[in-house]
Computed example of a mutant assay.
Amino acid sequence: MPKDKDPSDRTAHGPRHVAIIMDGNGRWAQARGRPRLFGHHAGARRVREVVEACPDLGVEYLTIFAFSTENWKRTQVEVAGLMSLFRRYIARETRALHARGVCVRFIGDRVRLDAKLIELMDTLEEQTRGNTGVHLTIALNYGGRDEVARATRRLAQDVADGKLRPEDVDVETLPRYLDTRVLPDPDLVIRTSGEARISNFLLWQSAYAEYEFIDTLWPDFTADELARLCRSYGARDRRFGSVKT
C-alpha cells in the first residue's frame, strides 16, 4: 500500500488509520477478583468487535498494540500466559478473519518469539495477504525505539554496501525501512485505561496523529465508543503546522 505523502491530504471526515494501545486488561480483571490473564482473555475477545466495526466507520487500517518489547519484564507466569493466548487467538481467529476479508500483518521483532507462534503468524499473514477489507496490523514484541534502531541498521548496511548514498538519506528514506513501510501513518491513536502516555508505540509514524486518552479499560471498549472517537476526530481542525487563511 502506498504511504501518504502529505498528512494534510487525508480525509477530514474520519480517520483512515486508527491505532490503539489496548491498556487496562489486568486492572479490569483485578477489579473483579480474577487473575490478570482473565483480563487479557477478555481483551482478546474485544478485538473482534472493534475489527468488525471498522468498515462502517470508514477505517481502512487498524493497528493494535498487543505486546511491547518492555512487556518481557512482567512475571514469567503472565508472559507465558500471554504467549499461549496469542497462539490460541491466531489459531482460532484465522478462518474468521479470512472470511471477513481482513488482511493481517504483524510488526515487531520476532527473534524472542517461539517457533510455533511464528509459524501461526506466518500462516495467518499468508492466508489473508490478498484480502482487501480492513488491514489489521498486530504489534507483537514491538517497541518504537527498537523498530527505529532495527531500521537504522538496515539503512546503514545499504549505505555500506553502496546501495544508498549518505547524501540521499532524508525524512522519506527511513520510513522505507520501518516495519510499517507498506502502511499509511496513523491518523488517530487511542489509549484506553486512563494512562496519558504513548509507551513507545509508533514513535516515528505518529508525528501528525491525533491522540485520544480515555478512561475506559480495554475489555469495556465498544464499537460505539470507537465510533464516538472517530466522529470527534472528524470535527478537529487539522492544520499540520500551517494556519488558516
Rank of each mutant, 00 (worst) to 15 (best):
T69M: 07
V111P: 01
G81E: 12
I118K: 07
R238C: 00
A19E: 10
K244I: 05
N131R: 12
P15M: 14
G26P: 01
I118D: 06
R27A: 02
T173G: 09
L217M: 10
T192R: 11
A66D: 13
L113D: 00
V243R: 15
V51P: 08
G130L: 10
V148C: 01
A207R: 10
L203W: 09
T128R: 06
D170Y: 02
R27S: 04
R74V: 02
A160G: 04
R110F: 03
A91V: 00
A29H: 11
V169M: 11
V111I: 04
Q76M: 03
E125K: 14
W28N: 08
G81C: 09
E78K: 08
G108M: 08
L217D: 03
V47H: 09
D114V: 10
L202W: 00
S84W: 07
R228T: 10
F106Y: 14
E60Q: 14
R100W: 06
G58H: 07
L37H: 03
V59P: 03
V189T: 05
V51C: 01
P175R: 12
G162H: 08
K163V: 00
G241H: 13
D187P: 05
A196G: 03
P15H: 14
N71M: 00
R45Q: 14
V102R: 15
R112S: 12
A209N: 04
E125N: 08
R191P: 04
V189H: 11
G241D: 12
N141V: 06
D187G: 02
A151V: 02
D237S: 12
V104T: 13
L117D: 07
P184W: 11
F86Y: 15
R100D: 12
L155A: 01
R105H: 14
R34A: 15
D6S: 08
M121S: 05
V47F: 13
G241E: 14
A42F: 04
H17W: 13
E195N: 11
R10W: 09
D146R: 13
L124M: 15
S8P: 02
I64V: 13
T123H: 15
K244D: 14
E195A: 09
D114R: 05
R197M: 04
H17K: 08
L202A: 05
M22A: 13
L120G: 07
R27H: 09
R100N: 07
E125S: 10
H17F: 10
L57K: 08
D215T: 05
L217W: 01
L82Y: 05
E147N: 09
T180Q: 11
E195T: 07
Q205I: 00
P2N: 14
D185V: 09
S68I: 02
R176S: 06
S199W: 10
E172M: 10
L62P: 05
W218F: 03
L178V: 02
G24T: 09
R87L: 04
A12F: 07
F221Q: 12
G43R: 09
Q127P: 04
T152H: 11
R181M: 13
D161A: 08
G143Q: 03
